[in-house]
Design a binder for these strands. Structure first.
Length: 578
RNA sequence: GCGGGAGUAGCUCAAUGGUAGAGCGUCAGCCUUCCAAGCUGAAUGUUGCGAGUUCGAGUCUCGUCUCCCGCUCCA
């Protein structure tokens, strides 16, 4: 099958059908459904809860207990990871230090007329200036003059002044709204000590040629005089709202009688900070040495503006995070190591092929903590609702020493690490040691997003079979590990099948469900297991009673084989990779 | 938050303003020797919620909630 055909097939999967199966088979329900639901929250049913636990356990086992599943780090040594489980609520100062309270969300401006919304810091002032000869050679002079007028003639939206200027010159509706005929020159981008970055160009207008300059809006203008600022979409003033902050932090109150003013606290928006603020504790009380990582799984909360796409963007979600501490000089090597290994890990769980990609971030989408030029990449899955695009499963970021530095400053704590394997050699031949703030590589995965990706990947329509669809989970993750059926409920078959199920449950029950079912026709029972994603069914039939063999029915291929009943436990263990 | 669409049994869907139904699934019994077979029966609904119009509302109007799509946003 060609790559294109695969793409077509995967994008053909209907999210509605997947959600329907999730509900029907007990993977995921809308939260508070009998009360009409609550936007942005979901409940996991019996199969979903087990699937989620299996994914979390796989991560915990491979990352924490086995240290990257035994893969050696760039220093040639085993990777050391220790776990923590930190509180969802921390001292509110934690979130001030981390930048979440102040900068978590960007103030937004609405154009009430066109109903468009944009980031306040993405709105730029645009000025049309008279062409004077010397102006052509001294852009700074123009810009300096232009910003003397606080209310600009025009405005434009974009990530940068250059982008905004491009939009206003290239899009016909915007050109028309702003009285611009066409762009004559190329766009010049620059940096000015007074206004920051800016962009300029020559354009023709109905009044002849003009010099057009795009610069940041004067500070506070939108807050104080939003009514006078022209809309970037229509050029008309009086329709823009002042910038409004969207509070993505979940506020709560400490103390049974406390009021919100004095006792406000926040539910964590990420599990990472709980790790950073315990860095010193872990270093002081365990025998870890940099480089090492601290891992944690847990719930985090964000008041998303628009929860959307099933569980993909919900307001309560679970993360699986590692903060890996290393010497600044080694950060780049560890970043590449984690990026590549995390990709391999997701692939090992069945998210293979074109539906999974590793994408390095462009420099302009780096988060506030990510150093200029330091790496940030996403592992992304092509969900049915993002296809042909992708949605983020895990981000791997070089956070530098940003967080430790912030906490050291805000808390007044000494968070530097004393590395006694570094530094010049003393007379006795021992290194003198080096004191430094470690850099951090953060592989941060979304557990709920992982589950959703597994559900989407596993969902396999098959008109040939009775169920019409089956869930092709990796056996390691399948919530139901195996099923045991007597072919019919008589002739002594249940008496053989039930003890086999009990034996399997005793050995494998900690990994997932072992089903036993003697009701209804065998085809119906197989079909049910297909929808639940059970990889193996063991069926006791008439022959079992005479030759002690059972039928193994394989979910993905529908193949059947006979094996000795005594070998079933070992057979299953081998298939589960144990 | 804005615009558009939708909401009837677990699921998929019917029902001109006039007694809320079907198929599938689920459950019970019978039957059944390898892929949702068959027979008999059962349970399941304040038609998302709340008002209004009407003799009468699943159907028309308004409000509200939730979901879907598009914007917007997304550490």
């Amino acid at each position: 099958m060609s790559a294109n055909a695969e793409q077509t097939e995967s994008s053909v999967k209907s999210m509605d059908d997947i959600m329907s199966l999730c509900k029907r088979r007990g993977f995921i329900y809308p939260a508070s459904e009998i009360y009409g639901g609550v936007n942005g929250f979901w409940d996991y049913g019996p199969l979903g809860a087990q699937l989620k636990k299996n994914l979390r356990d796989a991560w915990w086992t491979d990352v924490v207990m086995k240290g990257c599943d035994g893969k050696l780090g760039p220093n040639g040594k085993p990777v050391e990871i220790v776990p923590v489980d930190t509180s969802i609520i921390q001292n509110p100062k934690v979130w001030e230090a981390s930048g979440h309270v102040g900068g978590f969300n960007d103030p937004m401006v609405d154009d009430k007329e066109t109903k468009q919304r944009f980031r306040a810091d993405h709105l730029f002032a645009v000025y049309l200036l008279e062409p004077v000869n010397e102006m052509k050679t001294d852009e700074h002079y123009f810009i300096g003059g232009a910003i003397e007028r606080a209310i600009p003639d025009r405005t434009a939206v974009g990530n940068t002044p250059t982008e905004a200027l491009k939009a206003i010159c290239n899009e016909s509706t915007l050109r028309k709204a702003n009285g611009i005929k066409k762009l004559i020159s190329g766009i010049f981008s620059g940096q000015d000590h007074r206004v920051g970055s800016f962009a300029t160009a020559w354009v023709s207008t109905s009044n002849g040629e003009r010099y057009i300059a795009c610069v940041p809006l004067s500070d506070g203008i939108l807050e104080r005089r939003a009514n006078e600022v022209p809309s970037p979409f229509t050029g008309k003033a009086g329709h823009l709202t002042p910038p409004r902050a969207f509070n993505l932090m979940f506020k709560t109150v400490l103390g049974a009688t406390g009021n919100m003013e004095d006792n406000a606290a926040y539910l964590r928006p990420e599990t990472a900070q709980g790790i950073f603020i315990n860095f010193k504790n872990v270093v002081d009380t365990t025998r870890v040495a940099v480089p090492f990582g601290i891992a944690q799984t847990g719930k985090a909360f964000r008041n998303e503006v628009t929860p959307r796409n099933f569980t993909f963007r919900s307001r309560e979600f679970e993360q699986m995070e590692i903060e890996f501490f290393c010497h600044p000089d080694e950060a780049a090597g560890w970043y590449a190591f984690w990026r590549d290994w995390r990709m391999e890990w997701w692939q090992s769980l069945g998210l293979e092929g074109d539906n999974l990609i590793l994408r390095e971030h462009d420099s302009d989408e780096l988060a506030h903590y990510a150093k200029e030029g330091a790496g940030t990449s996403d592992i992304e899955y092509r969900f049915p609702f993002t296809a042909p695009g992708f949605g983020e499963l895990e981000g791997i970021a070089d956070r530098t020493n940003f967080d430790l530095k912030q906490h050291a400053e805000h808390a007044g704590a000494k968070l530097e690490y004393f590395d006694n394997t570094r530094g010049e050699l003393a007379k006795n031949g021992q290194p003198k040691g080096e004191r430094y703030l470690p850099h951090v590589i953060e592989p941060s995965a979304g557990l709920d997003r992982g589950v959703l990706a597994l559900l989407c990947e596993a969902y396999t329509p098959d008109p040939e079979r009775a169920s019409g669809v089956y869930m092709k989970f990796h056996p390691r993750l399948a919530p139901i590990k195996a099923a045991v059926f007597p072919l019919v409920k008589k002739d002594g078959m249940p008496e053989v099948a039930a003890p086999l199920a009990a034996a399997l449950r005793k050995r494998f029950g900690h990994l997932g469900t072992i089903e036993y079912d003697e009701k209804q026709s065998i085809g119906k029972r197989y079909a049910r297991m297909d929808e639940a994603g059970c990889p193996f069914c063991f069926t006791i039939d008439g022959d079992t009673l005479t030759d002690n063999t059972v039928t193994v029915r394989h979910r993905d291929t529908l193949d059947q084989e006979r094996i000795a009943i005594d070998s079933v436990p070992d057979y299953l263990a081998e298939k589960l990779g144990l």
